[in-house]
Design a binder for these strands. Structure first.
Lengths: 248, 248
DNA sequence: CCGGCTTGTTCTTCACATCAGAACTGTAGC
DNA sequence: GCTACAGTTCTGATGTGAAGAACAAGCCGG
């Protein structure tokens, strides 16, 4: 049994104890939680709301609370091989349907890394970038993934950097609203890419997919079609990853 | 992206965000954590200390912090079948060596449940109690498991009950010191049991094993031998459970 | 080995965030 | 529809959490 820290934080202790209780004994009602922690119901409710906000808890339809995704599954990775294995068939389908090169992108800190690429078979095409990285705040997949993160975290990530944080946050808010991000030659002359986030559970690396094409083939009239294909593909990858998480 | 609770608790939010950061990007130094959360180093250190105390974080020899056991493994169960499967061969060995009936006990809230029993083959013996429950604060296995829990949690569990909490906490402190618990006919006339905790990671149900015998065969001169056998068996079960946790 | 710098840890103080109580809203059973 | 219980929202005061300062520990280069 560990010693309690000399400069403990009581509110934090309540929250962490409640998380463990949900794990061990959930489902719990607000009243149960209040009794177990010896706090008022209103306090228990506020603690539960915080745990739900950060995915350490979930509320069921019967109003009771259970452990959330963070506490329920193994983490942080599924090995990269599983991620690639799940995503590749879908990327292949995306490339076949659109005729352009598709990528799987993983964002760690401020870096977007190309985890997989499926090249199209046109003579002029964007090549395989697997293993390479781009600044996340410029790349289409990187920005799509950052848009799905807590703005406070993004701010903290870029605060000490040369990046204009307010402009980035506005960009990310716009990406969140429209559901995709476009990178028009900002990282590579002659290349335009469209990125879309892949929903992942908390604790997993931020993930996105993108379509990358020669700018000469970028046609605004086809944007809706490309976005649709990306969105459907991202959803299928996410569903398959959820399924493999349950099995593994 | 969820809406932040209207009555959020900032300190709790910091702690939960830090836990997620450790999971996604650990190892982290105190200074890293302070920067990412935009708090003072002293605050980051206090948050990390709380996370370590409740097993959401661990500090490595190089002073950096990583996600702790709660965030690192799947939970809350390993199905009961795995627990039984691991424990049964060891219970069989214990029963063979001692000549008495052995039990696997799981404690949930204030209830000790018999998860498995291996009967001895003497004519007079304690029978199979699998599936039955006893009040945890009376049973030998129940008390051994409660003794391994945070006293504040035990207090909260029994505060509203008829149980004399202070007496119970003194009993549990004594059990912690001596390493075993004896139940001499308190739950069943003519039955004496000795219980010993099985170390489990946070988030797992509290688990214990016990030897139960007819009181007429309870011989104080053999207590040391029985306790030794229990302790060794508990350690072997714990080791096998750790091994199966790593594989699965 | 020593000194300087960085980083982790401990302590103090104060103001504001957390808590509990009250009020309001929602739910379930009769 | 009514009542009792439970979940959720709101308010105000006080004591807890945060930051700054000081101290301790660790690391690296001369």
């Amino acid at each position: 049994m560990k010693n309690k820290p000399g400069y403990g934080i009581e509110s934090v202790d309540h929250a962490l104890r409640l998380a463990l209780l949900l794990q061990q004994e959930g489902p719990l009602r607000v009243t149960d939680a209040a009794e177990r922690l010896e706090v008022a119901r209103s306090t228990a409710h506020r603690l539960l709301a915080m745990l739900v906000y950060r995915d350490f808890a979930e509320q069921q339809p019967d109003r009771r609370y259970v452990a959330g995704p963070v506490l329920r599954r193994s983490t942080p990775s599924e090995p990269a091989a599983v991620l690639r294995g799940v995503a590749l068939p879908h990327l292949e389908g995306l490339t076949a349907r659109t005729g352009e090169t598709s990528n799987l992108v993983v964002v760690v800190a401020d870096e977007a890394r190309f985890a997989a690429t499926v090249e199209c078979d046109q003579t002029l095409r964007v090549g395989d970038r697997e293993g390479r990285t781009l600044p996340a705040h410029l790349a289409s997949g990187g920005r799509a993934a950052l848009a799905a993160r807590d703005p406070d975290e993004v701010r903290a990530l870029y605060e000490e950097s040369e990046v204009d944080v307010e402009a980035l946050l506005r960009d990310l808010a716009r990406i969140r609203r429209q559901g995709f991000a476009v990178n028009n030659q900002r990282t590579e002359t002659g290349v335009t890419a469209i990125g879309c986030v892949v929903d992942r559970p908390p604790g997993s690396p931020a993930t996105a997919i993108s379509l990358a094409m020669p700018t000469v083939r970028h046609d605004r009239r086809r944007l809706g079609e490309w976005v649709r294909q990306l969105t459907v593909t991202a959803e299928r990858i996410a569903a398959d990853l959820r399924r493999s998480d349950q099995v593994g």
